[in-house]
């Protein structure tokens, strides 16, 4: 019997298990710590201004009164504008790539669109300052206001400065497009063959198949991808800071300069002279964190639902 000695502990296994578990736990820990630290930094300003912080437009560092309404407004408007432009394009690209593109074209085009996501934000900003903004000021804005006679409508009124909500929306549209299109592509690919074949067997044209069978099946996932794009747009910092004009004002005109939450923080952080100003910036960050957390959770949930259904 001595030949069969089966005992012995596996110390290595225990170390391995503890280590990987600790690494895995670091992610929830990081998120909790992050939320906590941002809240701590924001606390003095939130305590001083309460809910008025969200609704007031007064941002006066000298007198120490702060209201984030213009930044919140600017964030929402620029992001929605970006989605308005990017969503149809991104879904079009995704449909093209998943349904129509010949296989030799699929990879290269997908690669090019994905490359848009690889360009650093600050490079977009540089391009925005020196190309997009002058182009808007000299071509697009005069065209919209004078040629199309939209200058009297609230959306397109006022002088054409260049740096503006419109510029921010456009540059954000370019930046979120690859995110929306790549997630949409994945969701479309997850639609089972049987759905497509059923439609084609009923005599549908290719477009009718997509419109009638594929998109309805994937709709909540596509919705999720758009909301993911929204999450990106809400928090995008550098490029927006460089083209939006940085002004604490709510204006109905897309030609007017504005602010977003992220760009307020980035732009004023280095010049914030007193603690209340700093804390107000951090409070803007806390609001941004809360909004993007919510948006992300909703988006993940929607995408997860479709992918799960695809597997089942």
């Amino acid at each position: 019997m001595a030949s069969t000695q089966l005992h012995g502990a596996s110390v290595g296994d225990r170390i391995y298990r503890y280590t990987t578990t600790a690494f895995a736990l670091s992610i929830p820990l990081l998120l909790v710590l992050l939320a906590f630290e941002v809240a701590v930094a924001a606390w003095p300003a939130l305590k001083a201004f309460h809910l008025g912080f969200l609704t007031s437009s007064a941002w006066d560092a000298v007198n120490g009164t702060f209201g984030a309404a213009p930044a919140i407004y600017g964030t929402i408007v620029s992001s929605l504008l970006a989605l308005l432009i990017a969503t149809p394009l991104a879904i079009g690209v995704a449909i093209f790539l998943s349904e129509f593109a010949p296989s030799w074209l699929r990879q290269p085009v997908a690669f090019l669109v994905d490359l848009l996501a690889a360009i650093p934000s600050v490079v977009y900003g540089l391009w925005g300052i020196f190309v997009l903004v002058p182009f808007l000021r000299e071509q697009v804005m005069p065209f919209l206001a004078d040629r199309l006679h939209l200058g009297d409508t609230p959306l397109f009124s006022g002088p054409a400065y260049g740096p503006s909500m419109l510029a921010a929306g456009l540059i954000l549209a370019i930046m979120v497009l690859p995110y929306i299109s790549s997630v949409t592509r994945e969701v479309l690919m997850a639609v089972p063959r049987s759905q497509r074949e059923a439609a084609l067997a009923l005599g549908a044209t290719r477009w009718e198949m997509i419109w009638g069978a594929v998109l309805p099946y994937a709709s909540s996932g596509v919705m999720g991808s758009v909301i993911l794009g929204l999450g990106r747009a809400l928090g995008e910092t550098m490029a927006v800071t460089m083209v939006i004009g940085n002004r604490h004002e709510i204006s109905s005109s897309l030609f007017a300069p504005g602010y977003t939450m992220a760009s307020v923080i980035a732009n004023e952080f280095s010049e914030a002279t007193n603690d209340m100003h700093l804390s107000a910036l951090m409070a803007v960050g806390a609001v941004l964190l809360a909004i993007t957390l919510m948006v992300n959770i909703i988006a993940r949930w929607l995408v997860w639902r479709v992918e799960r259904r695809g597997q089942a």
């Binding site: 019997m1 030949s3 069969t4 000695q5 089966l6 005992h7 012995g8 502990a9 596996s10």
Partner: peptide
């Protein structure tokens, strides 16, 4: 039982079992 020794006994290391 492998050679009379229960391989599911608590003190037995499955790795040793699989090596044999």
């Amino acid at each position: 039982r492998l050679d009379g020794k229960d391989i599911y006994e608590r003190s037995v290391n499955p790795i040793e079992v699989r090596r044999r």
